[in-house]
Nucleic acid binder design. Structure first.
Length: 605
RNA sequence: GCCCUGGUAGUGUAGCGGCCUAUCAUGAAGCCCUGUCGAGGCUUCGACUCGGAUUCGAAUUCCGACCAGGGCGCCA
């Protein structure tokens, strides 16, 4: 008999039904006579009961008892039975199936489970095994309700996004996984070609060039749930392979792209939560984000903003600030108001944050506080009363408030300050949970200039449309990031669609004609065949899911992730391949197992 | 490449120079129990990541390796 229902399905309306359930034994409780089994699958848990005193006529109770004795934890089993009401007072309100149970009339062990290495039941926080054990047995970890819910959530989210995009005329088009290695950007994963020994494909870091060429190809609106690969070190929000919801549109401006994403996110939101998502998302300019929050992806759910003090302290005879300002740096401060933070930061905390500030690239922190109406600090002697008063007014500092000041080069200082801001907010519990704040970070520069070498580097990537003449002092780029709660979810831009302009940008980045031709010749050529004005965006699916589900790491929303060192603890990859395979590819490995004994022997002689 | 944190029964933990033939919980095995739901009761089983060093004595201190996680660099 096939299963008639899942383990999450049966309700009071099914009373009396003869059913067949198949699933896994999550818990069992044997009371000596009557025995209960929590039968689980991904849909839920149904209590099934072996009740020897209440079996139908002709049932072989002994055989049934023997079968149920074999039902060890996590074994895969089948039971036949009758849906009945639970004994009055024993209903389980926490479980949707909790009003009913299934009286077992027949039972069969489908496949016995080895003893599970950890417990899969829905336990309280903190009883999960270490992550490496979960990863080693990921197929068991995924049986847990929490992981099932994450997988369901992710599937639903991606499905809703697809639905919306299809409704809006987007075509889902697959781009190659085997492509060309590019010199810029992250390290590529390399795939050797057997047919052309000595040559290699690269796995895509993103479908960027192909989706742009799809626009040249008149596809107009493209999307793809695209797997991307980067051979760089992992973080909790970075995996060697990850998924992007990748899109490109022709004949659009930045607002068109943003409107489309806002529409899509609203649709997804409605589908997931049955709630309206507030749109349009607010915008913040790159410069403002840095100068107010010390980050290009600021978490704006809590206050703690920096205030510029460069002009206020310009004439203070305090050496450190004077030097900083003379070198074109900035001074800024943050007011930790008495009621939210000032009261809770003592002397030890201030020292701790100074230590932390040094770790994140700041020279240090200067602390000040308002006591008896005056700014106090170990360095107030270097400031005139007028300047102190001016700082106090500019910072809106009141009795009991605590200020910290940062000083140094613009970018590094605000970035460092941003880390301190975040740390303080975390320590003081100022970050709200279950509040989701999307916004656009825009008005970005086209290039970043390396302060040491003076070399130009792309702020986003070399295909962004410049907003003004490339020879101007400041060149803006038509690019923007979608941010959520202090995370970068994705970045989009208008692209260069003119071959000459694309070449000019490459030149600006230091590539000569030969390099351009060699690495991007095919692409620039494509632009020359009437490429339409176009632009697009890619949204990090893993990050989006992780943030919405309040997970610390994207590994929680990826079925089979790699660990910190890019190793799959489940299948043991990456692994050596046989010499025969290497030979066929005409590849010799320099790693590890070359026998250098001859060389050593020579040196000893 | 670098920095930080951690590694104790199957799992999660306590212990942090001698009170350690190492705590507690869970689990597993056995027995008891007819309404539980992470059932309960009783009994039993099971561990200091590895290699050096210090010491009369090391789970505990030090050094190194390995493993896991967080971060810097890197991620156009």
């Amino acid at each position: 008999m096939r299963r008639t229902n899942t383990c999450g399905e049966l309700r009071s309306s099914d009373l009396g039904k003869e059913v067949c359930l198949q699933g896994w034994v999550r818990f069992s409780r044997d009371h000596g006579g009557v025995a209960f089994i929590d039968l689980a699958d991904r849909y839920g848990i149904t209590q099934v009961v072996f009740d020897p005193e209440d079996l139908p006529e002709g049932t072989d109770a002994g055989r049934l008892d023997a079968a149920i004795k074999t039902f060890t934890r996590e074994s895969c089993v089948q039971i036949n039975g009758v849906v009945r009401k639970r004994v009055e007072g024993t209903e389980d309100a926490r479980n949707p199936t909790g009003e009913v149970e299934v009286l077992i009339t027949d039972a069969e062990l489908l496949n016995k489970s080895a003893l599970p290495p950890f417990e899969l039941g829905d336990q309280k926080e903190g009883v999960l095994p270490d992550e490496d054990i979960r990863m080693r047995y990921r197929y068991l970890d995924l049986r847990r309700t929490d992981m099932v819910q994450s997988m369901v959530f992710r599937s639903k989210l991606v499905h809703l996004a697809r639905q919306y995009l299809e409704q809006n005329g987007f075509l889902e088009i697959e781009t190659p996984m085997l492509g060309r290695s590019t010199p810029e950007g992250a390290r590529d994963y390399i795939v050797p070609s057997r047919v052309h020994p000595g040559t290699f494909y690269a796995l895509p870091q993103s479908p960027q060039l192909f989706k742009q060429m799809l626009m040249v190809a008149s596809m107009d609106r493209y999307y793809q749930v695209a797997r991307c690969f980067r051979d760089e070190d992992s973080r909790k929000d970075r995996q060697p392979e990850f998924t992007q919801l990748d899109m490109e549109m022709s004949f659009v401006d930045m607002k068109d792209i943003q409107d489309m994403i806002e529409g899509m996110m609203s649709y997804v939101w409605k589908g997931l939560y049955n709630e309206e998502l507030k749109t349009p998302f607010p915008h913040i300019a790159y410069r403002d984000a840095m100068e107010r929050f010390g980050s290009d992806k600021p978490d704006m759910r809590y206050g703690l903003e920096f205030v510029k003090l460069t002009d206020v302290v310009r004439d203070a005879p305090y050496k450190i600030f004077q030097n900083v300002i003379a070198e074109g740096g900035i001074v800024a401060g943050m007011n930790l108001k008495k009621d939210i933070a000032g009261d809770r930061i003592g002397r030890n905390d201030r020292d701790r944050y100074i230590h932390y500030a040094k770790k994140v690239g700041l020279g240090g922190l200067t602390w000040m506080w308002v006591e008896n109406g005056k700014l106090e600090s170990n360095i107030t002697k270097y400031f005139t009363p007028e300047i102190l008063e001016n700082i106090k007014t500019t910072m809106n500092a009141e009795e009991g408030d605590v200020l910290f000041l940062i000083a140094g080069p613009w970018k590094a200082t605000y970035e460092g300050g941003g880390f301190v801001r975040k740390k303080i907010a975390e320590d003081l519990g100022l970050i709200p949970e279950n509040e989701f704040q999307f916004f656009w970070m825009d008005e970005c520069p086209m290039f970043e200039i390396d302060p040491v070498s003076g070399k130009y580097d792309s702020f986003h990537h070399p295909f962004v449309l410049p907003q003004n003449d490339l020879d101007d002092d400041y060149v803006g780029g038509a690019c923007f990031d979608l941010c959520l709660n202090g995370n970068e979810l994705g970045s989009g831009s208008l692209r260069i669609h003119n071959a000459d302009l694309q070449r000019a940008v490459f030149h600006k980045l230091g590539l000569d004609d030969e390099r351009i031709e060699e690495n991007f010749g095919f692409f620039v050529e494509a632009l020359s065949y009437g490429a339409p004005p176009h632009g697009g965006i890619a949204i990090g699916v893993d990050r989006l899911c992780a943030i919405l589900l309040n997970k610390d790491t994207i590994r929680e929303v990826i079925a089979f992730p790699k660990n910190k060192r890019a190793v799959s603890l489940l299948d043991g990859s990456p692994e050596k391949v046989s010499d025969e395979k290497l030979e066929e590819l005409q590849i010799i490995s320099l790693a590890g197992d070359i026998d250098f004994s001859d060389v050593e022997d020579l040196s000893e002689e």
